[in-house]
Write a protein that binds this DNA or RNA. Sequence first.
DNA 1: TACAATAATTAGTGGCGCCTAATTATTACA
DNA 2: TGTAATAATTAGGCGCCACTAATTATTGTA
Lengths: 217, 217
Amino acid sequence: MYTLSEENYLKAIYRVSQQKDVKITPTAIAETLGNNPASVVDMIRKLTEKQLIAYDKKAGVKLTPQGSKDAILIVRRHRLWEVFLLEKLGYHWDEIHDIAEELEHISDATLADRLDKFLGFPEYDPHGDPIPKANGKVPKSFSVTLTDLKPGTACRVAAVRDTSNAFLQYLIKLDIGIGTRIQLIEKIPFDNSLVISINGKENTTVSQKFGENILID
Amino acid sequence: MYTLSEENYLKAIYRVSQQKDVKITPTAIAETLGNNPASVVDMIRKLTEKQLIAYDKKAGVKLTPQGSKDAILIVRRHRLWEVFLLEKLGYHWDEIHDIAEELEHISDATLADRLDKFLGFPEYDPHGDPIPKANGKVPKSFSVTLTDLKPGTACRVAAVRDTSNAFLQYLIKLDIGIGTRIQLIEKIPFDNSLVISINGKENTTVSQKFGENILID
DNA sequence: TACAATAATTAGTGGCGCCTAATTATTACA
DNA sequence: TGTAATAATTAGGCGCCACTAATTATTGTA
């Protein structure tokens, strides 16, 4: 099917296009993949030839229907493997991403669907990201963050935006996971810090950046 | 750790060294991997520099202790994934090899051991090949073939030597799997064909080549 | 032993996917 | 609008791992 690199580009473009409603530039892709814009330009040419993306200097990079379909399949595989690693092999939250990054490239025609069935057709991965269905449909993803909450109200953690180890390990330390209940006690006007109560326990203060990375239900 | 190619060479050298007690030449490795002897010579240099193999023109290629350890780990991963694919995802005998060929290269430090535990520490893979233990010990492998059997005696299929799809699909057709009971009725002197009874059913004739690829208990 | 067949090796090449450095295009702002 | 900063692109190169073709070593056998 595709080379490892091609798949990583497709996925990166898909992810960037999901996150924000902005134009996808070579530089943005390079930053996501941690490589050089010059390399990205090469790959843009290659993927354009293969009709997986369209590139217009004004509009930026866009996935074609085929590219979108293929990118979604890669994301599907990634997220299914994450569920497998956590639920079946007992890995922790912060350990699964990198392994899934390798597993997602295994391209057998029926593997994803078999894995999906084996796992009981999960809708969300361990970070709360929606797992695309076999038909390409993607369950709704969460977009409201902790910073959007009104002081005094409560919510349930539905997903995390940042999936870096640094963030996930901080969450483990704070005893926050998907499903954890959080009440916003107050916002500190000075720097938008948030005073929260986790699962009804004593108050904790977290930064605005932290709050923006917690997606709620 | 290693590149994909390096791992494939290590595994190929290990497999050749297990099969026969002959000198491992560049040509033999090239045949196993289906590539060119000239490419093999390049890789022999590379793996020698990394101290994973030693190459002597007289003695052929030998794995060093480190190379052997690493090769065994790759084989361990391959065979564990085969068990997973068959038992958990419902694949058939003849479908799992190629997928395991990809899965075996995923190199997380604890993945193989977690998978091993999840599968209940199996000793043999679906083809009857021994699965190396976490400590590098390899359960005994089978070496007696159907052609070694005396006419009139019976045996149990313990493993298969050839794992090609052609052979495995033939076995499925004949309703032979690991554990199947076979009785040798007679050997045809002309071409060493074997007349056998599978699971006590009516007699079937198979070739010498066939018999050499059935390992028995 | 000599010679033909086979094996091993070297030399040179090409694709892939990355890089740096240099150049060109675009954008933002004084 | 002109210019400085930033982004995009081109040019050239590199490592990896294949390949083919040519050459050298090693065999087996007459």
